[in-house]
Structures are given as C-alpha cells and as structure tokens.
C-alpha cells in the first residue's frame, strides 16, 4: 500500500500544481474582476441606457447562481461547439478544455462573488460616502480610495470561502478531460484497482491545499484589519 502511495503522490501533486491550483487562481482572479464590475453596475444609480446593462448583469448573476456548475461546464465545453451560426460561427465555439474550465469557473465565481462584494459595499456606512463627497472627491475616487478598501475587509472572509470552494470545485474539471488531480487519481485507480486508497489520498491532498489556504485567509484578515485591531493607546 505504501508503495502505491509513494508512487502516486508525485503524480497527484504534479497535477495539482500544473492544473488544479492555476485553474483556481486564474479563475478566481478573473471572477473577482467580473464580480467587482457586476457589483458596481448593480449599485450604480445611473438611469437611461445604463438600466439595460444593469438588467444584463442581474440576468448573468441569476443564471450562474441558479444552475449547477457541472451543467455549466458541460454547456461550455460540450455544448458550445454546436452553436453554429452561418457566416459567423460555422464550426461552433470549440476550445481547449483548460480554457473552457477557466471561462466556466470565472463566470461562476464572478456571479457568486458579485453578491458578496455588493453586500460589502452596501455595508460601508453612508457617512463614508458623504465624507468623501464633502472634500470634493469624485465618485470614482470615493469608490477606489475610501469605499473599496473598507468593503474589501468586510468581503475578505466570504471571498476566501469562495476561493476554498473553488479549489475543491475544480475537481469537476475532470469531467471535461482536464488532467487535474481528481482526473489523475481516477486514472491511477483504474490501473491499480485501489479506488478507496486513491480517492482517500486525493481527498487528503485537497484537505492539505485548503488548510494552507485557510491559514492564509487568517493571515490576510489579520493584515487587512490592522487599522481596526490597532489598540487604543489613549482615551
């Protein structure tokens, strides 16, 4: 048994560092940008044509939160090649499995995280907007310099949760042939007929990855809360 473990760990870790972690990090980074843009669009008080953009964003968030991630992966990877439009897309939309994974995980993360960021921005007291306006800051300066740093601190724990979930959800990428950790463990199990051992082993590696991330989350929270945690030196 130990020999199988010793031989499998390098293959699993290699798949983890080559696919699982990059898939999670790249998707989360793109997802955060999408989430921020979506949240700011939904919170905007602009009217007119902007309302159409708001409706599109609301639809996007609704769509990705109300359908299973696995189904989304299948639509993007297996479904889009059949989206054939004469003259524009004669062969449908075909992409590399890794690209399909990045697109799906980014859109899914963006939809969930947009709600987290929207709630965090709303949780910043209205007095902060007023104080920034009162010294003549533009809306963009107010958001960038005053509101987002405070909202980020509020959003950090739920966003970290989303990232940890995403690392585990990347195992679904096995279903679209990405050679990430779970896919590799399945292939090894098929060769050595030790499914219990292989799936337990990959579970331990996922647990290790997420434990490191949980530790990093704690460190980040402590770092970004330093001004809030600063002790009163006088009163």
């Amino acid at each position: 048994m130990w020999e199988i473990v010793r031989e499998s760990i390098p293959q699993l870790l290699s798949a983890g560092f080559k696919y699982t972690i990059p898939l999670a990090i790249i998707s989360f980074a793109i997802g955060l940008v999408l989430a921020l843009l979506s949240a700011l669009t939904r919170l905007s008080q602009k009217s007119g044509a902007f309302l159409i953009l708001k409706a599109i964003v609301r639809f996007y968030v609704w769509l990705f939160r109300s359908t299973p991630l696995l189904v989304q992966l299948f639509i993007v990877f297996f479904g889009l090649p059949y989206l054939k439009i004469k003259g524009i897309l004669p062969h449908g939309v075909r992409m590399h499995p890794f690209t399909a994974g990045i697109i799906t995980f980014s859109l899914n993360t963006g939809a969930y995280a947009s709600e987290t960021i929207r709630a965090s921005i709303s949780a910043v007291p209205v007095g902060q907007w007023e104080a920034a306006s009162a010294i003549g800051m533009t809306r963009l300066q107010t958001i960038w310099r005053v509101i987002l740093p405070q909202a980020f601190r509020i959003a950090l724990p739920p966003l970290s949760n989303s990232f940890i979930s995403l690392v585990k959800d990347t195992s679904l990428a096995a279903s679209i042939t990405i050679m990430e950790m779970f896919e590799v463990s399945q292939q090894i199990a098929a060769e050595n007929y030790q499914p219990l051992l292989m799936y337990s082993l990959v579970a331990v590696i996922y647990a290790l990855f997420t434990s490191v991330l949980s530790y990093l989350q704690g460190w980040l929270e402590h770092y970004f809360n330093h001004e809030v945690n600063a002790k009163k030196v006088n009163s």
Binding site: G127, A131, S133, A134, V228
Partner: peptide, 16 residues
Amino acid sequence: RRSTGMVFQDYNLFPN
C-alpha cells in the same frame, strides 16, 4: 464642495 469644508456629528473619518 471644494470651497465648503464639512464636519459631521459622527466625524466620518476614513478608518482605513
């Protein structure tokens, strides 16, 4: 607003 400084009851300092 740039010519009229405002001081609020609740201070509204930027905590960050």
